[in-house]
């Protein structure tokens, strides 16, 4: 009878991947988990805290307020960027020089580093030297993003729309370009009007890429830090303190490592949960052939 040969060498082949994943994901994440269940006063002294930090964070109004602001921010920018992006894509030239021109111009904001975008808008909106701020002031409109909550919100929203609408537009444009001409012909023969063409051909055919655009924009805006931090620093007061800004304040400003770690984990789980919901919806849409 032949013995089954055992060969464990295969483990060496997966070792590099295991090491890579361990150092890039598992170990950093476990460090955070470690902090979230312990208390420390420095000097490398740790005390077991159990779920105390999680309970504290969940009963803390500060986090709920930040979460509320965050959802409002993501909701508003999605509500503007998605329809606007589709509108831009629908009105772009379909081919030729002007099509390429539009693509290049629209890609420009996407190529600018986040903190530069923040700086641009921070200066642009200043009432003393910024073109936007100065003009509005001159027109007699009460605008000051460092003191007025509404001004601050409008500034960071307009900035995000300026920065990211192109992404939605480019994805929607790619979706539109993939629709065979025969669909439009069929619609013409059926005497469908412009709205019906959009509703029953373009929108369903774009749905796949639009869901990806929404998912990307949602995740990115939910984790946004740099741009609003550069412009408003979370102010005035806490008016534009979004989740990540709040987290950094807690972890680095106040050095509350335990609560900040618990906060991070919950933040991570919320994003994971919402992304999973999006993914499920997307897969179902695919099945229905939308």
């Amino acid at each position: 009878m032949q013995q089954k040969t055992t060969n464990q060498k295969a483990w060496f082949l997966v070792l590099p991947v295991l090491i890579l994943v361990a150092f890039s994901a598992v170990i950093p994440l476990m460090t955070v988990v470690n902090y979230s269940v312990q208390d420390t006063f420095g000097n490398n002294q740790f005390f077991w805290a159990g779920l105390e930090w999680f309970q504290e964070m969940l009963s803390d109004e500060r986090m709920w307020n930040a979460l509320q602001r965050q959802l409002m921010f993501s909701g508003i920018i999605l509500a503007i960027e998605v329809p606007l992006g589709i509108f831009v894509a629908l009105n772009m030239p379909k081919s030729g020089f002007w099509s390429s021109f539009c693509l290049v111009v629209m890609s420009l904001p996407l190529l600018i580093p986040w903190n530069v975008v923040g700086t641009i808008w921070q200066i642009f909106g200043r009432v003393d030297i910024g073109l936007l701020g100065y003009t509005l002031e001159a027109l007699g409109i009460d605008y000051n993003y460092t003191q007025n909550t509404i001004s601050a919100w409008i500034t960071i929203i307009v900035m995000d729309v300026w920065h990211w609408t192109s992404l939605v537009a480019l994805l929607a444009f790619a979706g539109l370009k993939s629709i065979p001409d025969a669909y439009y012909q069929a619609a013409r023969i059926d005497q469908a009007n412009r709205w019906k063409v959009f509703r029953f051909i373009e929108l369903p055919k774009m749905m796949g890429v639009l869901m990806i655009a929404i998912l990307l924009r949602f995740m990115d805006s939910f984790m946004i830090y740099t741009e609003p931090f550069v412009v408003t620093g979370g102010g005035p007061g806490n008016a534009t303190t979004l989740l990540s800004i709040d987290l950094v304040k807690m972890a680095l400003g106040q050095f509350d490592l335990g609560p900040a770690a618990a906060f991070s984990l919950m933040y991570f789980l919320v994003i994971l949960l919402i992304s999973w919901v999006f993914y499920t919806v997307m897969v179902n849409l695919d099945k229905k052939g939308m």
Partner: peptide, 20 residues
């Protein structure tokens, strides 16, 4: 215009309204 004529057309690709 094609809209005002009474024609129907079927293509090589399967053209149906995807969401209906």
């Amino acid at each position: 215009r094609v809209q005002d004529r009474r024609v129907a057309m079927v293509y090589q690709q399967f053209i149906n309204y995807p969401s209906m």
